[in-house]
Simulated scan of single mutants.
Amino acid sequence: MIRYPFLKKNATIGVTAPSSGVGIQNAELLTLASSRLKSQGFNVIIGETAWKQDKAKSAPANVRGHEFNEMIKDDGIDVLIPPWGGELLIEALEFIDFDALQDKWIVGYSDISVLLLAVTLTTGLATAHGANLIDLRGEYSDDTTALWHAVLETPVGESIVQHSSLKYQREWQHDVPSPCVFHLTEETYWKSLTTDAVTMKGRLLGGCIDVIRHLIGTPYGKLQHFQQEMIHDEPIVWYLENCELNTADLRRSLVQMKLAGWFENCSGIMFGRSPANRPVDNYTAEDIYAELFEELKVPIVYDIDCGHVPPQVTFINGAYAEIEVADGVGTVKQYFYE
Score class of each variant (00 low, 15 high):
14 G>S: 09
59 A>V: 15
139 E>G: 05
250 L>W: 07
141 S>C: 11
20 S>G: 12
75 D>K: 09
287 D>Y: 11
295 E>S: 12
197 A>D: 09
137 R>I: 04
95 F>Q: 01
90 I>D: 01
86 G>F: 02
195 T>P: 05
193 L>R: 09
94 E>Y: 04
197 A>V: 03
160 I>R: 14
296 L>K: 05
195 T>I: 12
295 E>F: 07
115 L>I: 03
71 M>G: 03
209 I>K: 08
236 I>D: 00
321 A>W: 06
53 Q>R: 13
172 W>I: 08
30 L>N: 12
30 L>P: 12
169 Q>C: 08
274 S>T: 12
326 A>S: 14
110 S>W: 04
176 V>S: 11
254 L>I: 12
89 L>Q: 03
139 E>R: 09
52 K>Y: 11
28 E>I: 10
338 E>D: 13
25 Q>N: 12
239 Y>Q: 10
143 D>L: 07
28 E>P: 00
31 T>E: 14
255 V>Q: 14
152 L>M: 15
193 L>T: 13
218 T>V: 10
204 L>D: 06
166 L>D: 15
235 P>C: 00
227 Q>E: 06
272 G>Q: 02
4 Y>E: 04
37 L>K: 00
93 L>A: 00
330 G>L: 14
162 Q>E: 04
13 I>T: 02
270 M>G: 11
162 Q>C: 01
143 D>A: 09
61 A>L: 12
251 R>C: 06
43 N>F: 11
70 E>H: 12
178 S>H: 14
27 A>D: 09
33 A>P: 00
